[in-house]
Simulated scan of single mutants.
Amino acid sequence: MKKIWAVLPVAMFMFSCNSEENNHDASGNFESDEVIVSSEQNGQLLSFTVQEGDSLSKGQVVGFIDSTNLVLQKQQVQATIQSLAEKTADVQPQVKLLNDQLAVQQSQLDHLINERDRYERLVKAEAATQKQLDDMNAQVDQAQKQMLVTEQQIKVQLNNTGTQNRSIMSESDPLRKQVAQINQQLSKANIVNPINGTVLAKYAEAGEITATGKALYKIADLSYLNLRAYITGVQLPQVKLGQQVKVMIDDSNGKYKTYDGTIIWISGKAEFTPKTIQTKDERANLVYAIKIKVKNDGYLKIGMYGEVKFETADKKQ
């Protein structure tokens, strides 16, 4: 009897501990929304200042990829655009020459008209013959036709030169788009951090040759972590998106540290219970994954084990 009474308190204590350990509705591990930052350009990493554990800001430039080839391509295209302007014809000298010729023709026409008026007066005075007047009218008509030809030449010269210049300058539009495309590629030579967060892993070093799509580092915002837990089909009707729950983790004193959490995701498919996960019903083979968002006070770490309690304080009472 003495032996039995000696063992009884130990057995009660173990039962109490097991009961306390199982006093949760689900359990899982903390994870984060990770972003893998990759290179958007081919070339050598001229600079890359990222270190694991660094806290980076969104928009912060953390490295630079050699873009010498792109700069040379841009300069070549810009030189081609400039050469197009040199190929265009300047119509003004030719037009000026024709305008000067037209001015001379106008002066000659004015003189002929004066002569014709004089011959008309002489014919009326019977001091000149009708043939002389007719010859003068013919000269006036010929001078007027010459002026019309010169005016037409000016129009043709302007149209032809304008068409030729437009054809040449039309080649500049695709070239300017090439410059814009190269500028966009040059902007990608800067490695820009996409989010506020902490660097979890680094995959490259300064001086290495990188390529488009090659991973450079992994970063995550650790101000909030997600507890990925698993529930049974029986528990599934008890949870909903946006539901507030209690998340518990072990602290250094052997007690629980409690956090407020919000259910942000519920899997629509059942899966076999992971070996490392405990559920409220240990006999359950199929479970549903859920994610609970928890604000991190600096104590929570990725991979840390956590437990979830769906019951409210009112239900416990």
Rank of each mutant, 00 (worst) to 15 (best):
317 Q>W: 13
238 Q>D: 15
110 D>C: 07
91 V>F: 08
282 E>V: 03
279 T>K: 01
246 K>E: 13
169 M>F: 09
266 I>M: 01
268 G>K: 00
114 N>G: 01
190 N>L: 02
208 E>Y: 05
36 I>W: 05
271 E>K: 06
272 F>T: 10
37 V>G: 00
135 D>P: 12
220 A>K: 01
130 Q>D: 14
151 E>Q: 15
63 G>R: 01
3 K>L: 15
166 R>F: 10
137 N>C: 11
175 L>P: 04
142 Q>E: 12
132 Q>D: 13
76 Q>E: 13
175 L>E: 01
173 D>F: 15
52 E>M: 14
283 R>F: 10
107 S>W: 09
212 T>E: 15
60 Q>D: 02
18 N>Q: 14
44 Q>H: 07
148 L>W: 14
116 R>F: 06
239 V>M: 05
98 L>S: 02
117 D>L: 10
212 T>R: 05
36 I>C: 03
126 E>H: 09
236 L>F: 15
188 K>L: 08
186 L>H: 01
285 N>H: 14
170 S>K: 07
45 L>W: 04
295 K>P: 02
279 T>W: 06
74 K>L: 10
123 V>M: 04
175 L>M: 11
269 K>V: 11
284 A>N: 02
1 M>A: 08
69 N>K: 12
130 Q>G: 06
109 L>K: 02
117 D>Y: 11
195 I>D: 01
59 G>T: 04
214 K>R: 02
100 D>S: 11
278 Q>K: 10
122 L>F: 10
145 K>N: 13
58 K>E: 02
204 A>V: 04
136 M>N: 03
218 K>A: 08
165 N>C: 10
146 Q>F: 09
217 Y>D: 03
154 I>D: 03
82 Q>T: 11
53 G>H: 08
99 N>K: 05
265 W>Y: 13
242 G>R: 03
289 A>P: 08
179 V>T: 01
128 A>Y: 15
119 Y>P: 08
272 F>W: 05
147 M>V: 07
309 K>N: 12
317 Q>H: 12
200 L>Q: 11
36 I>M: 06
